[in-house]
Simulated assay, not measured.
Amino acid sequence: MNILQALFFPPEQPGGVSSMVPYILERFKKRGWEMDLFSIPRRIRGKGTEEVKFSTFDWRIYAGNSIVDKYIQTYKDYIWWTKLRLNKSYDLIHAHHPIAALAMKQLYPETPVIMTIHSSFERELILNGKIEENGPEHLFLISLYREIEASVDQIITVSNSFKYYMGEYVQDVERIGVIPNGFDEKRFRPVSHDNQVTQFITVCRLVPAKGLDTLLLACGELKRRGHPFVLHIIGDGPSRHELEQLAVSQNIYEETIFYGYMLHPEEFMPFFDIFVLPSRAEAFGSVFAEAALCWLALIGTEVGGIAEQIDHGSNGLLVPVGDYHALSLAMEKLIIDPTFRHALARGAWDKAKKTYSLNRVIQQLKGVYEVYQATSE
C-alpha cells in the first residue's frame, strides 16, 4: 500500500504536527510500508492561477479580506506545486492541513483522503487580535470544516474537546475520530537534578493566544510574596517586546530569561522543574506531553487538549484561563512543596509514556490505514 503524508509547510522545526509526521513515516517504513512525505516550500508565492470552487459554500462572498485572499492564493499555489512535483498515484493520502486535504482531493478524486485537523486556525487568529469573531474571515474559516467533511473520506482530530468544538460546524460529529498526538520517547531524556531556586520553563510562540501576559503577572505576584524563582521563556513572536516590557513593569525582568527560538527545546527542558503555559486555547498542546516526558511538573489552563492531558492534582495542576492570581497560587504550591511537585512530575511522565507514545499512534493509524488497504485490494 502506497501512502502519501501531505503536510502544509515542510517539517523544519520541532513542536507540532510538522515534526511528528516524519517520525510516523520513519516508523511505518521500518515496518515495510511504502510512504512518501509532501509539502509546499515557504518560498512559493503567487504561482497558482487555477479557479477555486468549493461544493458547500461560495468563498467569493468573503473575497477582498486579506486573510481570505491569502488563504485562497495559498490553495492555488498548493495545487500548482502538487501538479508540478507529484507524478505518481497513491492508494491513500493522509493530509494534515485543510489546504492539503482539499487540494489533494481535487487532484486525486478517486483516491481516499484522510484529514487530521490539528488545531483551530480561526480561534488563534481571534485570540491574537488578527480577525474579529463572526467577521468575514472567521465565517470563511469555519465554513471550511463543512467543506472538509463533504470532501474527504475520514476526519481525525487530536482531542475530544476539539472534536466537539468542530461539531458546531459539521453535520455529523460522530464521523470524526480522535487520535491524540504521539511522541518518540527516545527524544526525551529526563535528567536528575536539584535546583536550589525553582526553575519555571515555558515553550511557545510569543502571541496573545498563549497567555504569557497572565504568566508574567502571576510571576509578579510570586516575587511580591517573596518567592525566589527563574522563568525561562523559549520561543519568539510578535508579542516579545510587549512581554519584555511587562516583565520590566512587574519588576521580574531579572528573574526572566527570553531565549528566542530554539531548535530542540526538549534537550533543554529536563534541567528545569516546572513547565507552565496558561494558553487561552489549545486543540492538543503537544508541548505539555513533551514536558511530561522530560519529567517536569505541569501547570496549564482548563482548555481543550490541555485539560485532557492534565488530571488536576494527579499529574499536574489546572487553573482558569486568564486568572493570574490562581496561576500564582498554583506556582507557589509547587515552589513550597517539592515532594508534591515530584509526585506530579512522575504522574505526568507515566501518563505521557502510556498515552502519548509514538507506538500507540502508529498502532491507531495502522488500524485506520488497514481499512482502506482492505477496500483497495
Rank of each mutant, 00 (worst) to 15 (best):
H325D: 11
I117V: 13
M1T: 09
H241E: 14
F340M: 13
Q363R: 13
K29V: 11
S66G: 02
T301V: 07
F200T: 05
F272N: 08
A63N: 07
M269R: 04
L318A: 02
V191Q: 12
S39T: 00
V68Q: 09
P278T: 12
G226M: 04
A297S: 13
R240V: 02
H193T: 12
V191F: 11
R27L: 09
E34C: 08
R360Q: 12
P208W: 11
D213K: 13
H241T: 07
M35I: 13
N128I: 00
M115D: 04
L293C: 06
K210H: 09
F140N: 07
Y259M: 00
K186I: 10
F271Q: 14
D184K: 14
V152K: 03
A103I: 02
D194T: 10
G316V: 12
Y108C: 06
H96F: 01
S376N: 11
A209L: 08
F38P: 03
K30N: 14
F162L: 11
V287D: 04
G313Q: 08
F140Y: 15
L144D: 01
I142H: 09
F54H: 07
G182V: 01
K351G: 04
N65D: 15
T157P: 14
E185M: 11
L277T: 01
Y164V: 09
T49E: 12
H312F: 06
K163I: 12
M35A: 15
Y169E: 03
